[in-house]
C-alpha cells in the first residue's frame, strides 16, 4: 500500500516549502528560487497551451520581453505606478497575442510555432536596436521596486515572496482551468480536434483564449522580472530563454499540472550551476529536452505519477 498525497496536501507542502525556503536557503539561493518562480509562471501558461491545447509557441520569451519593457518604460520614462504599469503591460501583451493568434490559430498545423518564432526574432531585434525607446543594448536601468498601496517590495526576499505568491495563485488557477468546462473542452481539443469540434467545442475560440492567457502569464512574469532586477535588457529574453522554457516543460512533464513547477525549480538550479559555462546553456538545455523527449516522454512528474498509481512505467504517451 503506497502512500499517495492528494492535491490539497501537496499544495500545503508546497506553500510551506516556499515560505520556509529563505530561512534555510540563504540570500543567493533565494534569488535563484525567485527566478525559478518567474520561469514557473511562464511554464504554467505554456503548459496549458502545449500540454492541453496541443499548440506550440516559440515566442513566449518575446511576451516576457513585452511585459518587462512595458513595465520598465512606463515606470521609468512615464512615472507610472508599478501596479498600473504591470496591468497595462499584461493587458497590452494579451492584446498582441490576440492579434497574432486570432488569424493564425484558424489554420491547421504548426504555423503558430513558426509565426511566434518570427515574432520573437522581431521583438529581440527591435528591443536591442530601437535605442530611443528601449535604451538599445544598454537597456533600461533604474526600474523602481514594485509596490502596492505604499508597501514596497524593496528587498530580493520580499520580491521572492511576491513572485511565489503569484506563481502559486496562477498554479492553483491552472487547476481550476483544467477542471473547468473550458479545461475539458481544451483537453478534448488536444486529444482529437475533429471529435472535439463535433461535440460542440468551439475549437478556434478555445485555442485563441488559451494562447492569450499563456501570453498574459509570460508578460506578468516579464513585468515581475523587471522589478526584481530593477533593470530591463533585451538579451535577458533571447532564444536561450525559450529553449530553457521548453526544457522546463519537457523535463517537468508536459500535460501534467505539477510538471512546469517541478521543471522550473530543477532547471533554474541547472542553469545557475553552469556558472562560467553559461555559453553552453543552449547546448545543454537542447540536449536535455531532446533527450527527455526520447527517454522520459512523460517528464519527471508524469513518470512519478504513473509509478505512484502503480500502472508501471510501460504506458506510452506523449
Amino acid at each position: 500500500m503506497s502512500w499517495r498525497p492528494n492535491h490539497t496536501q501537496s499544495v500545503f507542502v508546497l506553500i510551506a516549502a516556499v515560505v520556509a525556503f529563505p530561512f534555510f536557503g540563504g540570500a543567493s539561493a533565494t534569488t535563484v528560487m525567485a527566478l525559478g518562480g518567474l520561469y514557473a509562471i511562464v511554464a504554467i501558461g505554456l503548459n496549458l497551451l502545449v500540454g492541453y491545447a496541443g499548440k506550440i509557441s516559440f515566442g513566449h520569451n518575446a511576451f516576457m520581453a513585452l511585459g518587462a519593457y512595458a513595465s520598465g518604460i512606463l515606470t521609468v520614462t512615464y512615472d507610472w505606478s508599478p501596479l498600473a504599469a504591470m496591468l497595462a503591460a499584461t493587458a497590452g501583451s494579451g492584446l498582441v497575442a490576440f492579434v497574432i493568434g486570432a488569424p493564425i490559430l484558424r489554420v491547421r498545423g504548426h504555423y503558430l510555432a513558426m509565426i511566434t518564432l518570427a515574432f520573437a526574432q522581431i521583438v529581440i531585434i527591435v528591443s536591442t536596436r530601437w535605442t530611443e525607446v528601449t535604451g538599445g543594448l544598454t537597456g533600461i536601468p533604474g526600474v523602481p521596486d514594485f509596490s502596492i498601496l505604499g508597501f514596497a517590495f524593496d528587498t530580493k526576499q520580499k520580491m521572492y515572496y511576491l513572485i511565489w505568491f503569484v506563481t502559486i495563485v496562477l498554479f492553483l488557477l491552472s487547476f481550476r482551468i483544467v477542471d473547468s468546462r473550458f479545461g475539458r473542452a481544451l483537453r478534448a481539443l488536444g486529444a482529437h480536434e475533429a471529435a472535439a469540434a463535433s461535440l460542440g467545442v468551439d475549437v478556434v475560440r478555445c485555442r485563441i483564449q488559451i494562447f492569450v492567457l499563456s501570453a498574459v502569464y509570460a508578460a506578468l512574469a516579464g513585468s515581475l522580472y523587471a522589478h526584481f532586477l530593477n533593470y530591463v535588457n533585451g538579451t535577458f529574453f533571447d532564444l536561450s530563454v525559450m529553449i530553457q522554457l521548453m526544457a522546463i516543460l519537457v523535463v517537468g512533464g508536459i500535460g501534467t499540472l505539477w510538471g512546469p513547477l517541478v521543471g522550473a525549480v530543477l532547471l533554474v538550479w541547472v542553469s545557475h550551476s553552469l556558472g562560467s559555462y553559461a555559453e553552453y546553456s543552449q547546448l545543454i538545455f537542447g540536449v536535455l529536452y531532446g533527450g527527455a523527449l526520447l527517454f522520459l516522454p512523460r517528464g519527471a512528474v508524469g513518470e512519478i505519477a504513473a509509478r505512484l498509481k502503480g500502472t508501471g512505467s510501460r504506458l506510452r504517451s506523449g
Binding site: 496541443g54 506550440i56 547546448l283 537542447g286 540536449v287 516522454p297 506510452r316
Partner: peptide, 24 residues
C-alpha cells in the same frame, strides 16, 4: 517518436532541439 505514436507537437519540439544543438 514515430514508432511510439507520439503527439505531433513532440516532433516540432524535437526538430527545434536539433536546430538548437547543431549550431551550438
Amino acid at each position: 517518436l514515430w514508432r511510439r505514436g507520439a503527439k505531433d507537437w513532440t516532433y516540432v519540439f524535437m526538430l527545434f532541439a536539433v536546430a538548437t544543438v547543431l549550431p551550438n
